[in-house]
Design a protein around this nucleic acid. Structure first.
Lengths: 193, 193
DNA sequence: CCAATTTTGAAACGAACATTTCAGAAAAAT
DNA sequence: ATTTTTCTGAAATGTTCGTTTCAAAATTGG
């Protein structure tokens, strides 16, 4: 048969992801992608379809990587409250390393495209619900091991945590002060303990 | 002398604001603005300068309107904690009325343009600090009247409140469920009480 | 009513946009 | 080595972008 792709697919999607993450969908031009992915225009269109198709692939990769975070924490020998704290500490680390102030790609997508693109809305919604679900699982665990209070149902607490979690990421755009950010985390944990 | 502007300045900036708010800066075309403002292209350029100039005017108007919210609450006969609760309830109302899912224009600006446009960054930063300051004032008041705990300094609590406040606005993009949103507010207030 | 000045409308600007085209280079299978 | 298929590179597609131009219409003050 014939020739096959010379590039690593996940790798070049990763490069596209970085550009979309930093500049947003509308702020990213095809030329930006050509430069970043180090592929020819036609190769990109051939392999990935349209700019929007590529954006969705980039989002998928980002979500997949973010989801792994919860998986990693699941295995650690910690109680529910500590595990939720770890999620926030990972986020703190992301903020610390985010010298470009790119923020969270999924939040960026929500604010830029959520109300403009119906196709993306389904993706964003399922992702949001998934985050709530993952937090809820940790809350249930915490209520079982006694590290999280049981006078409020897990879903409600998970809503609160998810909300503060998103706020935390926005806050990270404006301050990188570790002490201030850790103070926020402590208050969140205090609320659910 | 000569002819004068036939349109109301704040009014047409308001119309531009709606478009930018909904579609973002990069997602808004000059044609969108011509249509929405009901002004000719050249009139817009004559009166407001560039697209970016107009965007900044729209942002200014939005910030000014948002700031009035704090002013209104200042006059009410409530304690510090209740006043902070009122801010969140106003936000809840905004979310409820936001059928288009436009969210908060300033957060949208932060996520879309904060890391791309140095000029806007100063504006965004001063605005963010101002929100923290306004919350801090309410915290101080709450600590004086006993409605807010005094074992943590006002600045630290204000950081927590601001962070959750922004998260609340993001959450509003994903759910309009009043009970769920009120539950989040209750947890925030519980944390600082 | 006239002169001064600005707004207005429509057309035009070059640049940048996303996407397509297509001939030739490259690699796999026979 | 030849055939087959795909990838690749560069150029070109038509569209839309933000902005400018300019003559005509409009409105003010004298």
């Amino acid at each position: 048969m014939a020739r096959q792709e010379a590039f690593n697919r996940e790798e070049v999607i990763g490069k596209a992801k970085e550009v979309f993450w930093s500049k947003g969908y509308n702020g990213t031009s095809m030329q930006d992608l050509v430069d970043a992915m180090d592929l020819n225009r036609s190769s990109i269109y051939n392999s990935f379809g349209s700019k929007m198709d590529l954006y969705r692939l980039a989002l998928d990769q980002y979500r997949s990587e973010s989801g792994q975070l919860f998986d990693e924490i699941e295995e650690k020998p910690k109680n529910g409250l500590e595990k939720i704290g770890l999620i926030f500490l990972y986020s703190l680390e992301s903020i610390h390393k985010d010298s470009e102030d790119k923020g969270c790609m999924l939040i960026n997508c929500s604010t830029e495209m959520g109300n403009q693109c119906n196709d993306l809305n389904g993706f964003l919604e399922s992702n949001y619900q998934n985050v709530v679900k993952r937090f809820e699982e940790l809350v249930v665990k915490g209520q079982q091991d006694g590290s999280i209070r049981s006078d409020e149902d897990p879903g409600s607490l998970a809503n609160y945590i998810t909300s503060t979690f998103h706020g935390f990421r926005i806050t990270g755009l404006h301050t990188k002060d570790q002490k201030a950010l850790k103070g926020i985390i402590q208050n969140v944990l205090k609320t659910i303990a």
